[in-house]
Design a protein around this nucleic acid. Structure first.
Lengths: 355, 355
DNA sequence: TACAATCTATGAAACAGTTACACGGCGTAT
DNA sequence: ATACGCCGTGTAACTGTTTCATAGATTGTA
């Protein structure tokens, strides 16, 4: 296959120099570095230890707080299943911190014996993902959708389910409907916003821009949101919050301020785990299966590694779905309506509050 | 240092055979395998790739559902900080699945170029941890406490804070106090139970064994718990639930069944993240900082790797603390008492329910 | 300008681990 | 008795990395 010595022969340089380039030794001349890297990429070089090729798969996160959300944990879980089954190893990398100055991403991976990477993208790491893809390194992105045809990704299509969610609110009789997306709007949140607008447009409801909110994907993001809503002169009667932890924060603050859910405010959240069940009433939500996304990411990566030639860029689109629980109801209704069954809801709320 | 060839020379065998032993090649004779392994352990062999020693740190989990809890995520977060700073790599391993038949744990690690391991222990993986420690492989356990003097671990001492928690309930006037520990009782949960009993004993309250519950560390564990309590003829007026997700499940089911928290039932939970804030009322809880545990684990491991001789086994004990929020109150009280400030509580509950 | 000192980039060689292949010994079948 | 096959191990060839040496360039100094 392609070895350090092979590349050295092609470029007309010693194996030591090739090794130095791959390990980002700063002493090697710029022109030589470029020539070596080009040859290494062209030969689809993968490191070996002894005669055995390396078998590391990297989970790469870019921004700091990434590792920590339920989404990331679930992805890891889904990934590790397939990885272990194939006898590969899973390493965790921080693209920002692990990369040396002036180092290619491919170099960073080769240095660590990484064969393929799952990139955990956020809105501000689009460039990194596209860079890695354009370097030709086998990689698949989770968490973001890309127009760039070179980027391979796994994506949960949340636009249709978001539209269904918004239509559910409209069907209940809501007209003043708010939406709250992530402070740093990524493509997922943009999709959810788009689905929301689809519904509004289809049902001929004009959308008041004062009802468009942004919040950080943290608990206090939801806190702020509810405070803003509560302070409005004509507050919305329903809100679609496109992030799980923000939605939970909103639930809490609504209680704090005496805003009843769903009587005073219907809330539709977003869930990738089981957040929707740990609030009360259980949260009506657009849902995705993050573990499945992790599994799919491995499958795509596996395909990417297996194939010999550069065929089509593999992608996978999963579905999201809409689940009705107890946090949505017709607007301005009191307790009398609460016994009514929702369409697909499993919520069995009993009246613990007596108004 | 110690190389494959060095060990081969000592044992009187070829380097190839040593490599085969380390990689668990089934073809090598049993007697030879034993001699080689003994020599490798004695020489504190660490794998290299080329002339560079490997620098992998493994996060090892043993049981399947482990990776996925907030605790594990937080540990990973704390770990990765130190690991990246030192230029090491973090790999995720499943001890159960990755180990080959008849393979030593040390072999499993050497095969992967792992230099040190953080072991995520549960109640049923004590043997594995002790085995790894007794093999002399640099490792530190999180999640469990060990009597075995060979095992190095990081531990959050939850007995004193649990005692304080129980005393808080007693001070509020509770006498019928229940406790719910994990279905598979590990040392952490045992400590919390012990602290609970300490308080009962110190205040001369006889403990009714019917008030000792066990539940799975899942949401429905809490569900079952509350159902059992609600069905009792003389139910407890307070319960200490030693697991975060169980506690949250209990909160939900209490609402479902119309059991008011804290009026009908005071709940003290356990929290290693910010679970206590995402329920309502905010949960009075014994708390630990799981990210700090991860950081400490790395420090201990680092110390373990750095030292040359076998000195004392490093351990680290962190503290847990008790936080009063809104889920505890005097027993049998109605809304009139609810305005009273708790000792350290930040809870600013407002009466959203009107009884 | 001449010359020494230093620095820089690179190659040769030594060394790390792994595996393909060869081979000797042992058991078994014809 | 001989042939065949299997098992265990060593040799050698092949990974990648680093130390050391060295040619060439650069810099400092008289």
């Amino acid at each position: 296959m392609s070895s350090v010595r092979e590349i050295a022969r092609v470029v007309g340089v010693s194996p030591a120099t090739v090794s130095r380039v791959i390990n980002s030794d700063p002493r090697v001349a710029e022109t030589v570095r470029r020539r070596v890297l080009e040859a290494a990429n062209k030969a689809r070089y993968v490191a070996s230890v002894g005669r055995r090729p390396t078998t590391n798969i990297a989970f790469v996160y870019t921004s700091q707080p990434s590792l920590g959300s339920t989404y990331d944990t679930a992805i890891l879980q889904g990934l590790s299943d397939g990885i272990e089954l194939m006898g590969l190893d899973l390493v965790i990398l921080n693209a920002g911190r692990n990369r040396l100055d002036h180092e290619t991403y491919t170099q960073m991976f080769m240095r660590r014996g990484v064969r393929g990477a799952v990139l955990r993208a956020t809105a501000d790491s689009h460039l990194i993902c596209e860079q890695i893809a354009s370097e030709g390194f086998p990689s698949v992105v989770v968490g973001e959708r890309f127009a760039n045809p070179r980027v391979s990704f796994v994506h949960a299509e949340s636009r249709p389910a978001s539209r269904t969610a918004a239509e559910h609110l409209i069907d209940l009789g809501h007209r003043r409907i708010a939406i709250c997306v992530n402070g740093i709007p990524d493509s997922d949140h943009a999709d959810r916003l788009a689905g929301f607008r689809d519904a509004m447009k289809a049902r001929d409801i004009e959308f008041d821009d004062r009802y468009a909110f942004q919040a950080w994907a943290r608990r206090d993001g939801g806190t702020q949101l509810i405070r803003q809503i509560a302070a409005m002169s004509r507050p919305p009667t329903a809100v679609f919050i496109t992030d799980p932890i923000t939605a939970v924060g909103a639930f809490n603050e609504a209680r704090e301020l005496g805003v009843r859910v769903p009587e005073d405010l219907s809330i539709i959240g977003f869930d990738d785990g089981e957040m929707r069940y740990i609030v009360h009433p259980a949260m009506t939500a657009v849902c995705q299966d993050a573990v499945a996304i992790g599994r799919a990411a491995f499958e795509v990566l596996h395909e990417l590694l297996d194939r010999k030639s550069a065929t089509a860029v593999p992608r996978k689109v999963l579905r999201t779905w809409f689940e009705v629980h107890g946090s949505t109801a017709p607007p301005g209704q009191s307790a009398t309506i609460k016994g009514s069954r929702q369409t697909t809801g499993q919520s069995r709320r009993k009246s613990t509050q007596k108004e």
